[in-house]
Each structure stands twice: as structure tokens, then as C-alpha cells.
Design a protein around this nucleic acid. Sequence first.
DNA 1: TTTTGTGAATTGCTTCACAGCA
DNA 2: TGCTGTGAAGCAATTCACAAAA
Lengths: 213, 213
Amino acid sequence: MGKPNGVPAPAVRRLSLYLRQLESLAGRQQSTVSSRQLGASLDLTDAQVRKDLAYFGQFGHPGIGYRVEELIVQVRRILGTDKSWNVLLVGMGNLGRALMSYRGFAKKGFHVVAAFDNDASVIGQTVDGPRPIVVQRMEDMAKTVKSLNIRLAVLTIPAGEAQDVADRVLAAGVRGILNFAPVTLRKADCAVAAVDLAVHLEQLSFRLAGGDA
Amino acid sequence: MGKPNGVPAPAVRRLSLYLRQLESLAGRQQSTVSSRQLGASLDLTDAQVRKDLAYFGQFGHPGIGYRVEELIVQVRRILGTDKSWNVLLVGMGNLGRALMSYRGFAKKGFHVVAAFDNDASVIGQTVDGPRPIVVQRMEDMAKTVKSLNIRLAVLTIPAGEAQDVADRVLAAGVRGILNFAPVTLRKADCAVAAVDLAVHLEQLSFRLAGGDA
DNA sequence: TTTTGTGAATTGCTTCACAGCA
DNA sequence: TGCTGTGAAGCAATTCACAAAA
């Protein structure tokens, strides 16, 4: 049932971008798209687009291109977003609260259904979101993960606490972590994605400070 | 004066991670570190670490390793964060406000010194941050960029407005963009870094939904 | 025509393995 | 001994180029 393992990681990253662009095309009522068109909109070659998609199946139609709606369905299935995912969030600081009410998650089928913090003054508060949610104690995590079938966690906490919280979240039964703390997590065979906001600015400053130009 | 162009992009990305780890080591009073140690903490091989650093110079000491404080200075210089950068932020929604008060930026020398929005009810408001800032009209951008010597912009705006705002920001004199909108920007020879929060969750769902495991 | 899917060629990145230095 | 810096080897990803299909 698992897909073949010869898929380059960069191809999987681009799959998300293809989906995003396809959804945009669908919104503009465009019914088919060529690999050249799709690639141009993302700064990729047509060959790259075709090769990436071909890792997962034959979705195109020679002479026509790809049917937008059809390909959306396929890519969602490949990415696993044809079903919805329940997500928990740890860390109710500014960033955590902002992500709670971020509509982009729900649009893609990710639903923040539980929120945690270790600060007693925050626990019990109701935070806004698509559905308002009461912030829970960390101790209640395992029970909540089980009862709500949560499989993903978003960590918006200070670097010093991140590893401990990650361990706890995994122990509670979560399978994947989106980590905003500026540390690399020791991961015990679980999926981890990291977003370090400062790192991205550093990459820009490198490029502007003689890095390439 | 520019560094040679044979540097792989992945090496530059890792440079930020090395710096983060080195700063952590410095905080714990560790004075030297070997490529093996540094690599292990980031899930990289020792050879990878040495090769990455060697693209930029000879910083190590055979038999000793790398002197932590010394290497921090060098890496900051390479990344361009030995000097501070003025940054503007467009889009005062939840995410924008959260980033305004995010301490991680200032810690790395990035200072949000101006904020913009196109919503009349937000313009003129004071938003919190390291220094509180008054939200300006988009029309004032060019003047502000020049007077405060702003070189980077962070965009936390809806996808539909992103390209227009990016064009405007570049016209105002900004040289690099950190884009949180879920669209790929047509970039006219400027540096762009993209953070799409939903994309990261999709990568996790792929890995959990039979993608590799 | 137009456009896909794909083996072959190419480019790029990582790992190996070891000389040289402390 | 312990460790770096680096050419050479190996592996991975991208691009090329063309047969096949509509």
C-alpha cells in the first residue's frame, strides 16, 4: 500500500506547490494545464513537472496536458489531504494564537482541535479560532490525543522547552511535529518539519550581502 | 569581494543551523566543537559539516576542532548578520502582529522598524513590538524605506494581494522578501524566501500517509 | 500539431578516505 | 592520537531529447 520509495524529497515538496497552483487555476475555471504552464508559474521546467508527477502515476493526457480537477484529486490523495487531520497546538504565545486563527490550515483539511500551555494563567482560557477552544494542561494531552484522534502537533514554544515538549507530545501518541522553535529536535522515528523564521531572514541577508549577486 | 559562486544552496541553508547550534554551545560555555559533534546535533555527517564550512574559508584547527566564538563571528559575517538589518512588515493581521513582537528576529539582528496595511481602520494604530510602531499607509512606503534604509520586507497578507504588494515593496527599494502568502511570487531579480505554513503540514501528512514509512 | 512519459546524459551534492598538521 | 581540509568516488536530482499518443 505504501508508494515506491524512489521518490526524491524535493519532488514531494514541489507536489504541495503544484497543488496550490492547481487550486488557484481551478478557481479561475481553467480546466486543463500543460507541464510547461504549471512549471512556468512556479519557476520550474516542464520536464521537472512531468518527472515529479510521473513518480506517482500517469496523470497527463498527451496533446492536452493535465485535467486540473482530476489532478487535484490525485495530488490530494498522494499527500494524504483527501482526508482531514486533527492537530494540536502547544504554546499559546503570540505566534500560537495567530496560528489558531489561521484560515490556511482548515482550507487544506488541517483542524486545530486542542491547545496546550504550561502557564497556569493561560490554562482554562478560551482562544479564538474556526471553533473557539479551551487551553488545556499538558497533563491532559495523552487523553485528548486519544479521544480526538490527533496525529499532528504544532509547537510554538521557546527553544529551551522544545525537546521536552516534543518528547511528551510523541509519548501522547502524536506522529508528526511542525516545529517553530529554533532548535533541531532529536526525533525518535517520527516525522518532523521545522520552520525557523530567523533562518529564513538569514538566507535573504546572505544573498543580499554578496552571497551570490 | 563577493564569495565564489560554487557554493551549493543546501550548504548555505545549513550555515544558519550551524550558527544556531554554535550560539547554543557558546551559551553553555563550550569553547571548541568538532565537526562530528556539530554534525551529530543536527543529524549531519562530520564530512558534511567540514565541506560546508570549507566553502567559505579555513576555520578549523586540526586536532582541536572549531573554536566556537571564533566560528560564530565568521558565520555571522558570511551570512551578513554581523550588521543589523532594518525590516518592514506588510499585513497587520494575526500573523503580522505576532511577528511584530517575535523576539527571535531582533536576537539575530533583524529589526522591524515599519509596518503597513491597506485597511483604513488599522492605519494609524500603534502595534506592539520591541519598539511600538504606528501602522502606515502603503503610499508612504517609498519614503519610509529610503529614510530608514530598509532592505527586507516580510509579507503577511492574503494570497490575492501578494503579487501587487511585492511589486510595490520592490519599487519602494526593498531588496529581499520573506513571503508568508501561499503563492509563488514572480520575482524581478530580488531575493525571495517563502514560508507556506500549510505546505509544511502537507509534507507531514504525506510522510504519515504511506509516503515513506 | 501539441504534449506526455521516460531512458540517457548531465549536473550537482554528499560521502569516502587519506595526507597533513597539532 | 584526534581532527581538519580536500581530491576522488559515488549517489541523487535535473535536464535533455525523442517515441508515442491525441
